[in-house]
């Protein structure tokens, strides 16, 4: 998932929204995905996610995110299809395994939900600066600063650790370790020991970050310390209304179909 959580600078309509509005939009899409039991509606939400990506100028990243989720979706789809036995039997397989129409329907539902619920949060993080997110969590939602800092630091460190792991893998590859093997079991066996140096460097970096924050007055911060102001304007109100409409539509579609 390297790179999917990095902030992409921009000045699009979505970039300029209040961070809280972006967070709300992302959460509402997730909620709508879990409320809805309609395949078509979920597909429309995925298209909406791609539309959000296009508007924010990160369409390619949105598509890459979809591709990244593909492997996980295939695994979940197969498990659902093979082990859910509701509905009419379509195919009988050895070992008393059946493929049913209910299983296929359920598999599509789970996969669509997974994609619909994952994309908005990743897209939101791509168009929101981590500090802005932390600031609104503290100033608007009154979340204690240490918790907001921990959350945003965890998000910020994802690409840092991904880069670190890439560096370790490259170093090992240059020493002749065949990490490009196609045998998944062999690959796991080779990669697992690399988690130790990653863990050590990760702990060291987190410790350094904690010291750095402490040495710049981390514990002196109050909820009024934030310099930037995050006003809610007409654009935010429009997006909040759209978010409510999305959830309302999910409920409506559920009640109709």
């Amino acid at each position: 998932m390297k790179g999917f959580f990095d902030y992409v600078p921009g000045s699009s309509y979505l970039h300029r929204l209040n961070p809280l509005t972006k967070l709300l939009l992302a959460l509402m899409i997730c909620i709508a995905a879990f409320i809805s039991a309609n395949h078509l509606f979920l597909v429309m939400l995925i298209v909406l996610n791609l539309g959000i990506g296009a508007q924010a100028g990160i369409f390619t990243r949105s598509v890459m995110l979809l591709k990244g989720l593909l492997k996980l979706c295939i695994i979940i789809f197969l498990l659902q299809v093979l082990f859910i036995r509701d509905g009419n039997v379509l195919v009988k397989l050895p070992l008393n395994i059946f493929i049913t129409d209910g299983g296929i329907s359920s598999a599509f539902m789970v996969v669509f939900r997974l994609v619909t619920a994952t994309m908005p949060l990743a897209l939101m993080l791509s168009i929101t600066q981590i500090n802005d997110l932390s600031n609104v969590l503290v100033t608007k939602l009154r979340i204690p600063y240490p918790y907001a800092f921990a959350l945003t630091t965890a998000i910020r460190f994802i690409p840092v650790f991904a880069n670190e792991m890439t560096g370790i893998i490259e170093a090992q590859t240059s020493r002749g370790v065949q990490l490009d093997t196609r045998n998944i079991f062999k690959k796991i066996k080779l990669v697992l020991p690399l988690c130790v140096p990653l863990l050590i460097t990760s702990v060291r970096k987190i410790e350094g970050s904690a010291i750095s924050a402490e040495l710049r007055g981390f514990h002196l911060r109050t909820k009024n310390s934030c310099y930037k102001k995050y006003a809610v304007n007409i654009n935010d109100i429009c997006v909040i209304m759209i978010s409510v409409v999305i959830v309302g539509s999910a409920i409506l579609v559920n009640s109709i179909f």
């Binding site: 600066q129 981590i130 500090n131 630091t153 970096k205 350094g208 970050s209 010291i211 750095s212």
Partner: peptide
């Protein structure tokens, strides 16, 4: 100013 600059950063911008 710490030795390890990468870990000194607490923000993304």
């Amino acid at each position: 100013v710490l030795q390890d600059i990468d870990s000194q950063m607490v923000s993304s911008v």
